[in-house]
Write a protein that binds this DNA or RNA. Structure first.
Lengths: 332, 332
DNA sequence: ATGAAAGCGCTAACAC
DNA sequence: GTGTTAGCGCTTTCAT
C-alpha cells in the first residue's frame, strides 16, 4: 500500500504539499496539483483513514444502537439514519442490544475508544446517569426513547399521549376489559414507560382497572403474540379481556393469527390495537388498527442533531413531523 | 483522555510493559499487573482503537453491503451477520446501496482504506472483475449473491433450481401464462440472473413463452406491487397472465392487495408466488405461497468464512442448511 | 521480566 | 506556495 510519502517522492514534492492537496487547502499551484494527482493514480493511492483519524481526531463513523434490527420499526429507522448520515458524510456502525445492557455498554466504550464519533441510541437499557458520563467522549442522542430529565438531546414522539388517546379510542368503542402488552420490563426507568403511563392514565380516568392476568411484558415477536393469545384463551371466559393494546404490530399480528386459527373473531371476540403501522398491517386477514410512527423524520432529526454536535454547530430539532397518528382499520 | 503514557507514568513503569499487559503477553510479574490495573482504573483509561490499528494493522470491523435494510430478507441477514460477528469479536458497518454501484464502490474503498477489515457483499451491482481487484486489501465474501466463475468465496443457495421448481409447480397446477418480476435489471451479470435462468428453463421445457408485457424488472416494494397489479389489470383480458412469479414477498403482497381491493380473486384470477417467506406472509388475507430462504445459515456461514480469512485460518462452508424450500399456502 | 526507541501514515505549526 | 519537523497513541524489535 502506497503512503503519502510515496506519493510525495514520486511527485517530487514534500508530504505537506500532498497533505494539503488531500485536504484541499488553498494555494497549491495547478501544476503541482496535476503532478500529485498523477502520482496518486499511478500508485493507486488511498489515504489511510486510520492514520488520518489518529492525527486529526476527526472520525466519520456514527454508531446506532437498536434492540433488534429485524423489528421493521428499527430497520426503517436505521434506513433513515443511514441515508441521512451518508448525505452528511458519515458511515454507520450498527449494533443490536437484544435488550442486553452489556451490549449497550460495549457501544458506549466504542465512543470512548474513538471507534465511533457519535452515537444514536434508539433503545436504552442501562442507567441514564452512567450513559450521560459518556458524553465527554462524544455526542450522544436518544432517538425514539425519551428519558425525562436527561441532559442528552432527544428526538421523540409523545408516546404517552398517543397511547392515552389509543386507549380512549378503545374505551370509546365500549371496551372495558383492556389488556396491555409491552416490550419493556415494566420496571421504573425501563423502556416503554411512557406508553404504560398513557395507558394507565386512560384507564384511571374511566375508572377501569388493570388486571395482573392482562399484563404481558417483554414481548416483541409474532411468536410472543401466539403465546399471549394462548394465555388469553386459557383464561375462564368471564375473566378474558375484550380488547388488547399491544404496543407492537408484530405481537398484534401474532395474537390475531392465533385467534383466527381457533375460529375466534376479531374484533368481536377481542379488539386488537397494534403499534408502528408496519407496511403489512394493512394487508392482514383482519386489517390492523394501529399507530403510525414518523420513522423517517425520527431518523432524520436524530442524525441532524448528532452531526450538528459532532461538527460543533447548533441545530434546532424540527418537531413538526414528529407526530404519532392513530390509523383506524378493522381490528379495533 | 488518558494515554498509555499516562498509565505508564502513574504505575512507574515503561509504556512497553503496559502495552504488554494490554496484549496479555506472558511474563509480567503479578505485582506489576496490579499496579497497571490500578493506574488504568484511576485514570479511567481505554486504549485507543485507532492508534492500535494504525500500528498493528489489525482491525475489528466488518462491512456489510445490502441493497435495502428495510427489506426483511436483508434485515434478517444483517441480524444473523451481526450476531455471529459479535460472537467472533467483530463489529459491523452497514451500508445500503439502493442498487447504486457508486455506494458499493465506496464500501470497497473503505476496505482499501482499512476502515473495514473484511467485507460481506449481500448484493452486488458492480463489475465482479473490479471487485476482485479489491481482494488484495482484505477478504471479501459474496453472501446470497452468486457470481459464477468468481474467485471470491461465495455462500449461496441454488436459486436457479428453486425458481425452476417453483415455476414448474405453477405449470403443474395448470397455469400457462406466467408473468415474472425481478429486482434486477435483467442485464447479463446483474443480480437475480440465477432466478431468471431457472424461470426461463422451466418455461422452455414446457414450451411456454415469455411475453414482454409480463416481465417486470427493478421491482422491490409493496408499492411496486401495486403498480404491477394495475398494469396487469389494464391489459386486455385475453392478454393477462394467469400466474406470477414475483421473486419478493413484498411485491407479491402488493399485487395481492391491489387485486383483492378491486374485487379479484387469488389464486383464481391470478396465482401469486412470493419469495423469502417473510413472517407476515402466513397471515395475509390470502396466505402467500412462497419460497423460504435459510437466512440464518446464510449469515452465519458468510461470517465464518470471512472471519476465517481475516484470521488466516481455513473454514469449510457447511452447506447442509443452505437449502431453499417451497412453502405451499393459498396464493398459488 | 522490563525499558528505550523507532516507527505506523498522517496533520499542522512554523519557517522560508 | 512549499518544505521541515514534531508528534497523534500505540506496538515492536532490540537491548539489558
Amino acid at each position: 500500500m502506497a503512503t503519502i510519502k510515496d506519493v510525495a517522492k514520486k511527485a517530487g514534492l514534500s508530504v505537506s504539499t500532498v497533505s494539503r492537496y488531500l485536504n484541499d487547502h488553498p494555494y497549491i499551484s495547478d501544476d503541482k496539483k496535476k503532478r500529485i494527482k498523477a502520482a496518486m493514480d499511478e500508485l493507486n493511492y488511498s489515504p489511510s483513514m486510520v492514520a488520518t483519524q489518529l492525527r486529526s481526531k476527526k472520525g466519520t463513523m456514527i454508531g446506532i444502537l437498536v434492540s433488534r434490527i429485524t423489528n421493521p420499526f428499527f430497520s426503517y429507522l436505521v434506513d433513515s439514519i443511514e441515508k441521512n448520515s451518508k448525505l452528511l458524510g458519515y458511515n454507520v456502525l450498527v449494533m443490536q442490544t437484544y435488550d442486553d445492557p452489556a451490549a449497550e455498554l460495549k457501544m458506549l466504550e466504542m465512543l470512548k475508544q474513538q471507534v465511533i464519533t457519535g452515537l444514536i441510541m434508539c433503545s436504552v437499557e442501562g442507567n441514564p446517569d452512567v450513559i450521560e458520563t459518556y458524553q465527554q467522549y462524544g455526542p450522544i442522542v436518544f432517538c425514539n426513547e425519551r428519558i425525562p430529565g436527561s441532559t442528552i438531546p432527544q428526538v421523540y414522539t409523545d408516546q404517552e399521549q398517543a397511547t392515552f388517546e389509543a386507549t380512549n379510542y378503545l374505551i370509546g368503542k365500549g371496551y372495558k376489559k383492556i389488556a396491555y402488552c409491552t416490550g419493556g420490563s415494566l420496571t421504573k426507568g425501563g423502556h416503554g414507560n411512557a406508553r404504560t403511563a398513557g395507558f394507565e392514565k386512560a384507564l384511571l380516568e374511566s375508572k377501569l382497572t388493570m388486571k395482573k392476568d392482562w399484563i404481558f411484558k417483554e414481548v416483541h415477536t409474532i411468536a410472543d403474540g401466539h403465546q399471549i393469545a394462548e394465555k388469553i384463551l386459557s383464561l375462564p371466559e368471564s375473566n378474558r379481556p375484550d380488547a388488547i393494546f399491544t404496543g407492537s404490530d408484530e405481537v398484534a399480528s401474532g395474537i390475531l393469527q392465533k385467534f383466527l386459527q381457533v375460529g375466534k373473531k376479531v374484533p368481536e371476540d377481542l379488539a386488537i390495537m397494534g403499534f408502528d403501522n408496519q407496511p403489512f398491517t394493512a394487508m392482514l386477514a383482519v386489517k390492523l388498527t394501529t399507530i403510525a410512527q414518523p420513522v423517517d423524520a425520527l431518523g432524520r432529526e436524530a442524525t441532524k442533531v448528532l452531526v450538528a454536535q459532532i461538527e460543533e454547530a447548533t441545530y434546532q430539532i424540527d418537531t413538526t413531523e414528529l407526530k404519532l397518528e392513530l390509523i383506524e382499520r378493522e381490528s379495533a
